[in-house]
Design a protein around this nucleic acid. Sequence first.
DNA 1: TTTTGTGAAGCGCTTCACAGCT
DNA 2: AGCTGTGAAGCGCTTCACAAAA
Lengths: 210, 210
Amino acid sequence: MLGAPAKERLLQILRILEGEEREFTSAELETLTGWPSHTIRKDISFLPKTEDDETVDTGRFSAGTSSGYAPRTLVPLIREALCLDRRRKFCVAGLGRLGSAYLNLDSAALGEFILAAGFDTNVNRVEILKSQAPLYPAHKMGEVIRRLDIEMALLCVPAETAQGAAEKLAAAGIRGILNFAPAIITVPPEITVRNVYVRDELLALSIKMT
Amino acid sequence: MLGAPAKERLLQILRILEGEEREFTSAELETLTGWPSHTIRKDISFLPKTEDDETVDTGRFSAGTSSGYAPRTLVPLIREALCLDRRRKFCVAGLGRLGSAYLNLDSAALGEFILAAGFDTNVNRVEILKSQAPLYPAHKMGEVIRRLDIEMALLCVPAETAQGAAEKLAAAGIRGILNFAPAIITVPPEITVRNVYVRDELLALSIKMT
DNA sequence: TTTTGTGAAGCGCTTCACAGCT
DNA sequence: AGCTGTGAAGCGCTTCACAAAA
């Protein structure tokens, strides 16, 4: 119940609704997201029903209100369904140009995610760079990740060292890796990887452009 | 024929096979990609058959060769199927940490895309940074983009200046924008935007992790 | 025997059409 | 009238099982 495509759409809807106050109809969400309104309604219909409502209202978003979905009620439901209620910690592995750029993202751009640490094999960078989060030499990864309970890592090392760094992260007990290095990394199956390849993004963009 | 999920997988296979010489079995590709071997074989079976082969071979990759797929024959077929034949030019707008990181991607990581220029309002950066592509002050954007026929831009400026930079790119005749700034940008409808938000990538990763 | 190639079955997501509420 | 909510139909992707080739 609630497949991967639906989760992707709900995430997009969540982004639109967050911070909004006025209600959105499924037709509006269609123009904003590009997904058909009936698909969106279907996705939302899969969300858990709020049982704490004592009134005998049939539709939980008061179907037929002729006004749409209220962010106030919908946003928490989506967050719960997508397991986004917890604030998760992540770290940056590799503090070159790319990694240090992500060190300096302000918390508004990160939402529920907390930048908890940065790592690099080059001790100079660790000492020189300034960051809100503490920076450590790479060999302390295992200790720090476990102590701070860091779940995810942005992998920002060069392509040549990506596989090695991924293995170090795996050994350090990381659970998910966002791989920005233009390389294919393989890790134990209990670790989830998501690749952010510039080439793939350009490809997706050019497909969208046609 | 050949749906979106299959394209995604073929792209991943293409990345693995490019530059390789030895043959790969579908079982090997399974361990490398994570997709089941029968799914991979199915995807490949959808590729157009090479008609120029005079011999009456049944399987075009010589089914039963007991050795796997030859990159030599497979790579061009995938490239054609994914419409990756044309080489498209792009530029980088904003040469801070993030932008300059992307300036230094080698061509292997970019595939069919060509980095044709970099722009920044800060003339110092334009003069000091070294890059394979020529760098220009931002005010030359219109002239350069049109002269070099650049189609896409990586928008790597800070969030505060993202909207202004996007408007300059729009005025310069860009057709697509890959927005790396953590900001929502609005452009004329003839321009396609694709956002790469770290927060969204982290969200997608954590959903995948559950 | 190993590995590709593929019709057919299976299954999950999307779409439809309409009921229900305001 | 306008909009949500949802069983059921439809369809596309995945999986299966086995034929064919070296």
